[in-house]
């Protein structure tokens, strides 16, 4: 693979509160190569989405910065397309119009009408949604909506595809289906992907590297696991693969031994109890 494409250096973000600044994220350093598939995994509230939003340009880092192709990221842009968690299609536009909006916006008047039409249809074909061009989002299933969301992002020909728990709201079967589609598409287009997930299997199956985040506040990168499994990957074959299971085990042990969230809650409860007894005494 080529040299660094997307570079996060000492990225941190803090929010001003009444009690002084609250540091949500700090010292995030990550170098991603062109065509690499990177997942971010961690417990809820650890700032995964914040990292993604900073790369997308929707949030501004208060420390450090993001560089894409030697240019600093300061605002959102079509070269960093986002697939949102809950599809975020415009409910008043049809499937076709939703993708068309992105294509028109990105082509900036350079494409002819026929070219736009071809490109929209091509991308919907890619996610197997050609049969529902004129349907409104509320007329199709959740999995289909997410497919259209992916098609909309791909249609912008992004250099980096940012996915915020894209399959989190879907049932297991649909999710597996879409994961396979995503692997297929990524192999075809060689797009750089940064994906947030809660799902250990999904992370191991899809990623070249898994970035494991520590719990907040002041969350940062805990460990980075390189998944060295040959592609194309098949979920059935991998299910019995010892190295696949080894990778899974490593992620699980990070999440449930090194960064136990449950313990945190337990200790908080104990603290509360203590303060209560102190107050009554």
């Amino acid at each position: 693979m080529q040299k660094t494409h997307l570079e996060l250096t000492q990225v941190g973000i803090s929010f001003p509160t009444e009690k002084g600044p609250f540091v949500a994220l700090q010292n995030v350093n990550l170098h991603i190569k062109k065509g690499e598939f990177v997942s971010l995994i961690g417990h809820s509230g650890c700032g995964k989405s914040t990292v993604l939003n900073i790369v997308a340009g929707l949030h501004q880092a208060t420390a450090g910065g993001v560089i894409l192709n030697h240019k600093e990221v300061t605002e959102p842009g079509p070269e960093r397309a986002v697939v949102f968690q809950n599809h975020s299609l415009l409910p008043w536009l049809t499937v076709y119009q939703n993708v068309e909006l992105a294509v028109k916006q990105q082509s900036d008047g350079k494409k002819t009408k026929a070219e736009i039409r071809d490109w929209v249809e091509h991308n919907l074909e890619l996610v197997h949604m050609s049969h529902a061009l004129d349907k409104r989002p509320n007329e199709i299933s959740g999995g289909m909506k997410q497919r259209v969301g992916i098609a909309r992002a791909l249609a912008m020909q992004p250099e980096v595809l940012l996915m915020d728990e894209p399959f989190g709201a879907l049932d297991a079967l649909t999710r597996a289906h879409l994961q396979d589609s995503l692997m297929e598409i990524q192999a075809q287009l060689n797009t750089t992907v940064m994906m947030i997930t809660h799902d250990v299997d999904e992370a191991v199956l899809l990623s070249d590297r898994i970035v494991m985040m520590t719990n907040g506040p002041a969350a940062t990168i805990g460990e980075i696991l390189t998944v060295d499994l040959p592609r194309p990957r098949h979920r059935l074959q991998l299910a019995d693969d010892p190295s696949y299971n080894h990778y899974r085990h490593q992620v699980l042990s990070f999440l449930y031994e090194k960064q136990r969230k449950v313990e945190d809650l337990g200790s908080k409860r104990a603290e509360k109890q203590q303060s209560k007894t102190q107050a009554s005494a």
Partner: peptide
């Protein structure tokens, strides 16, 4: 907010943002 984010990522102009979103 999701739709506002879509508008930002697509970099819609003020007028198109108003009309489309």
């Amino acid at each position: 907010q999701d739709l506002l984010n879509v508008s930002k990522v697509l970099r819609l102009s003020w007028w198109r943002h108003l009309r489309i979103i």
